[in-house]
């Protein structure tokens, strides 16, 4: 099974399974990654699914939409160049092993 590794803000690594076609947020909420709240359920409206993408993976993700870009400005934790909304990262086979860092807060 392909996987995504979430790294909590305290450094703990938590690998989870992910399936083709679901978002990284959906994989996370299905498997109880506490650091992802996803209040809007993946509709790109809440910015509570914020992640910092591991530098090695950043360029391999599809570009972000204007909506995602605007929303990230309102994220609770600092926005960094590698900030993304995990509900907008659609998982595919070529993302097997993706590493996402969790911010220290989503609210």
């Amino acid at each position: 099974m392909p996987s995504i590794t979430f790294i909590h803000s305290d450094g703990r690594r938590q690998p989870i399974e992910a399936s083709e076609g679901e978002s990284a947020m959906q994989a996370a909420t299905r498997q109880d990654i506490n650091g992802i709240l996803a209040e809007c359920g993946g509709n790109a409206m809440c910015a509570t699914c914020h992640v910092y993408v591991d530098e090695a993976w950043l360029a391999r993700l599809p570009a972000m939409s204007d909506d995602e870009d605007a929303l990230l400005d309102g994220a609770a934790a600092d926005r960094l160049p590698n900030s993304r909304l995990s509900c907008q990262i659609k998982f595919a086979a070529d993302l097997d092993g993706l590493v996402l860092n969790l911010p220290d807060r989503q609210l």
């Binding site: 909420t29 709240l37 209040e39 809007c40 359920g41 509709n43 409206m45 809440c46």
Partner: peptide, 16 residues
């Protein structure tokens, strides 16, 4: 997460 009390999709509550 995922409840539809605020709807879902493009019309999901803009005041949520």
């Amino acid at each position: 997460s995922g409840h539809v009390g605020f709807g879902s999709g493009i019309h999901m509550c803009v005041g949520q």
